[in-house]
Amino acid sequence: MAIKVMRKRQGYRHKATQQAQVAFIALLIILASSCIFIISPAPSIAIAERFLQPSSAHWLGTDHYGRDNLVMILRGGFWSLTIAFSAVALAMLCAIPLGLIAARTTKVFLQRALLNAADILFAFPAILTALLITALYKPGLLAVLVAITLLNIPVFLRLTFAAAKNLYRAPFINAARALGASDRRIVRRHILPNILTPLLLHASTQVALAILVESALAYLGLSLPPPNASWGVIVREAQNFLEFSKIPIIATASLIFATVIACSTIARAHSIHK
């Protein structure tokens, strides 16, 4: 009976890895196709061909301007994914050093200050930041990027702080220090490699969240204006023409859903796999 139990557990691990692989490949396909379509010229406006049904020429039909739906959605995917990835990457670049400093420092005041600042920033919804930047500067790429980055910085700061703090207590760090390793060397060779995996996993979850937030901001009109439409803008424009064609909204919704699930599956499968 023990063998049966073990085999079942292995099967479960297999399934989770498979899910993650499928998710990863799906994500890559979406990303690759969106990049290809972004490089080619923008779909032309052909008012005569509005709201066509799906056909061999237009796989998903056309929208209210006569542009091919599939191309528009994939181009939108490029912007949504790029903004999400870059915002998370930027947040990690800013937050990881700060988190490491907070974990390393012996001055309690500095540590408390960093963590409290992170706490307060944590509570700030992205929409507030985006609205503020829109009001003070102008809506567009900067607003969305800064908003999502600010949203993610406290998350990664807390994560690196918790992980690094645990790691600093480990005996091998003490051993390295006893051997004369400088702070920088310890960070580079011992701490960073070990905290990288959980950080990347959280990053995939945060990218999923970032896609959701970016589409919401784009829907409100705070992100890139058309023709560089991201998914939220596509939904907003298609909303006015629902009685003519529901395809843009349904397709965009499915794509957002698929991308978010793919990103979060990668993270969850690994935690099950553990």
């Binding site: 589409s215 919401a216 909204i249 919704a253 978010v260 699930i261 979060s264």
Partner: peptide, 8 residues
Amino acid sequence: FIALPSFL
């Protein structure tokens, strides 16, 4: 409902 944005 987790994977869908609120406006959708």
